[in-house]
């Protein structure tokens, strides 16, 4: 068992419903690890558990040898886990620039007083702004967001917002990046771009990626390892091709087998 990132025996129930039931998996550093499963199988709940929005009733989440269960989301973000949301959670009344700058929050130090005293170029706050602006500009270049840099997020089309959210998560320079259905609402061309970006992110940012996706082409194309969930339990784990052929997986997707044929 690697100590980079692993989940042990994770469980949570809402009322009588066992949303996640004894799920364990182990993620190697710098790999793309995909979680698939029918709707309501507990994929997003696992992400919410990992980043501290929910607390599991039992189980452990280990990041670099440390159990992060019970920590608050902001603490977990500082330890190196960043995520995107299925239903985009951006800061709508702020510009793209400010949204991605907010991703740098944990790496910056300016407080109330040093911020308020940003009177000249040499002031600490101004220096810090400049340094982190450079980081953010790199991300904006990488994701091709130059043209919308100063626009308000609420005025952007859906696909662009997804990218801004990805950019914000990247700005945290995380060790583990959780992507919750990044391709939802994108057309085929955008999905292809996204696949390339995700691979590039893994290379350039040396980050481990956990991916929830419904697009099987994408899963099969970029994943190093896949697990499949059904009713909160893990029913298969392995290489993409292995999971694809697993009888229980096919059964879980009964009537949806066709989705694999195109892969």
């Amino acid at each position: 068992m690697g100590d980079h990132f692993r989940v042990e025996n994770l469980s949570i129930s809402f009322g009588g419903l066992k949303a996640v039931d004894g799920v364990s998996f182990d993620v190697e550093p710098n790999t793309i690890f995909s979680i698939i499963g029918p709707n309501g199988s507990g994929k997003t709940t696992i992400f919410n558990l990992i980043c501290g929005i929910y607390h599991p009733h039992s189980g452990r989440i280990i990041l670099e040898g440390r159990n992060i269960v019970g920590l608050k989301p902001d603490r977990i973000a500082r330890l190196g886990i960043a995520r995107t949301f299925q239903n985009i959670e951006l800061f709508g009344n702020a510009t793209v620039m400010d949204n991605i700058m907010l991703g740098r929050h944990i790496h910056m130090k300016t407080g109330v007083f040093s911020g308020a005293f940003m009177w000249w170029r040499g002031s600490r706050a101004a220096q810090e702004e400049i340094v982190h602006r450079e980081e953010v500009e790199k991300i904006i270049d990488f994701l091709d967001l130059q043209s919308v840099r100063d626009q308000f997020v609420s005025s952007l089309p859906y696909g662009k917002r997804k990218l801004v959210e990805l950019g914000r998560a990247l700005a945290l320079k995380p060790k583990v990046l959780l992507l919750d259905e990044p391709s939802a609402g994108m057309n085929t061309e955008e999905k292809e771009d996204l696949s390339i970006w995700i691979k590039d992110i893994r290379e350039d940012y040396k980050v481990t990626i956990l991916l929830i996706e419904h697009d099987m082409n994408m899963i099969m194309g970029i994943s190093d390892r896949v697990i499949c969930l059904n009713y909160g339990r893990k029913i298969a784990e392995g290489l993409p091709q292995e999971v694809q052929k697993h009888p229980e997986v096919i059964e879980a997707y009964l009537g949806e087998e066709d989705i694999f044929r195109h892969a």
Partner: peptide, 28 residues
């Protein structure tokens, strides 16, 4: 000045989505 820098942005983050603010490391 305050609103142009880190603290001001964190305030805006809380206003627009406190869940996302927490997830990017803003201590509510």
């Amino acid at each position: 000045n305050l609103l142009k820098t880190r603290v001001g942005r964190a305030f805006v983050a809380i206003r627009d989505s406190d869940i996302a603010a927490e997830v990017i490391g803003v201590n509510l």
